[in-house]
Each structure stands twice: as structure tokens, then as C-alpha cells.
């Protein structure tokens, strides 16, 4: 009787321990640190060079699980009004209906749907909404590093991604020729655990 009870107890303990080991580790929620993140774009100018500009305001959240990077997700928003091309009049032009139409479409967003991972490289498929047009794209993000913030002691993780879209796919057709159709976005995100 005593042996049976002991065996049952051990079996239950074993099942509990195995279940705990097999359960997926929960992904941590991170917030994008706007002041330490960059959203840069490049576009061909007159077919001879690349012009680089940036957006000052990138916000959003990242869910990341270092043990299971494929469970990662991202919800990112870029403020279209925050475009910075180093010339105020050009900023106005980029924000105008000729290009971003920032007053009508103030946000550029990317919401992930699924991800696959290989080491620190994560292929994220999601919906990019730009200029009021939503399209599914797949971007490759690389985890740059993980650590702890020296002062707040919060967990931190950073990612880098570079992807190219055709602006004509997002109904931004004005001046294709003098300005390239392809726009490359370079995102470098620093995030801190919530």
C-alpha cells in the first residue's frame, strides 16, 4: 500500500516536471525605445545616387522569446509626419500628397503575422501599411544583442532589418523615373522589457 502511494506520488511529480519542461517559454513584451531606434530610408535620385532620409519617431512593441525566436512578433508604427530629409522644404514635399500624404495617412505600420527563425535571424511575415495601402511582405530581422539596461536593470534586445519595397505597390507613383521606384528601409530597433 505504502509502495503504491509512493510510486503514484513519484509518477505525478515526474509528469508535473516533464510538463513544466515541455511548456513553451513565454515571450517577453518589449517596448521600442524611440530615442535609440532608427528608421532610415534610401531611394535612387536621378538614377545616379542614393538619397538617404529618416523618420524621427518609431514606436511599437516587440514580443521576443530567445528560446523560441519563431514565436516573436512585432507591432511597429512610424510617424509619417516625422520624416527628416535635412531640408525643411523637402520634408514638406515628402509629406505632401505627391508622396506620403502624411496628413491623410499619418502612420506607416508593420504588424507581424508569422515568423520563422534560424539562429538570430528571423524572417517575419506581416502587413505593411504605407500611404493607406496594406500589403503583406516578409522581412528579415537579425537580433543584434541582448542584455540588461545598466540603470533600469530592464532586459533589452536589439534588432536590425533592411528590406526593399516598390513605392508603386503602395500607390506612390509620382515622379517615378527621376526618383526610384524602389525604397529601401533600414530599421534598427532597441527595445526594453515592459
Amino acid at each position: 500500500m505504502k509502495n503504491t502511494l509512493l510510486r503514484s506520488g513519484l509518477t505525478i511529480l515526474l509528469i508535473v516536471a516533464l510538463t513544466a519542461l515541455a511548456a513553451p517559454a513565454t515571450a517577453t513584451d518589449y517596448t521600442i525605445d524611440t530615442n535609440h531606434s532608427s528608421a532610415i530610408f534610401k531611394i535612387k535620385h536621378y538614377g545616379v545616387s542614393y538619397f538617404y532620409g529618416a523618420f524621427k519617431t518609431v514606436t511599437g512593441t516587440v514580443q521576443y522569446d530567445s528560446d523560441n525566436p519563431a514565436a516573436s512578433s512585432i507591432d511597429l508604427t512610424i510617424d509619417a509626419e516625422s520624416v527628416d530629409s535635412r531640408v525643411p522644404n523637402r520634408d514638406d514635399h515628402i509629406k505632401s500628397p505627391d508622396f506620403l500624404n502624411a496628413k491623410q495617412f499619418p502612420a506607416i505600420t508593420f504588424k507581424s503575422k508569422s515568423a520563422t527563425a534560424s539562429g538570430d535571424t528571423i524572417d517575419i511575415t506581416g502587413t505593411l501599411t504605407l500611404h493607406g495601402v496594406s500589403k503583406d511582405i516578409t522581412v528579415t530581422a537579425t537580433k543584434i544583442g541582448e542584455g540588461e539596461h545598466p540603470r533600469s536593470k530592464k532586459a533589452m534586445v536589439g534588432f536590425h532589418s533592411e528590406f526593399t519595397v516598390k513605392r508603386s505597390d503602395f500607390d506612390m507613383n509620382f515622379m517615378i523615373g527621376p526618383l526610384g521606384d524602389e525604397v529601401t528601409f533600414i530599421l534598427s530597433l532597441e527595445t526594453a522589457a515592459q
Binding site: H93, S96, P97, D98
Partner: peptide, 8 residues
């Protein structure tokens, strides 16, 4: 045209 939008 001089008010920020060449298109319009």
C-alpha cells in the same frame, strides 16, 4: 505648385 505639392 508652390505650396508643397507639384502633383496638385
Amino acid at each position: 505648385g508652390l505650396s508643397g505639392s507639384a502633383l496638385l
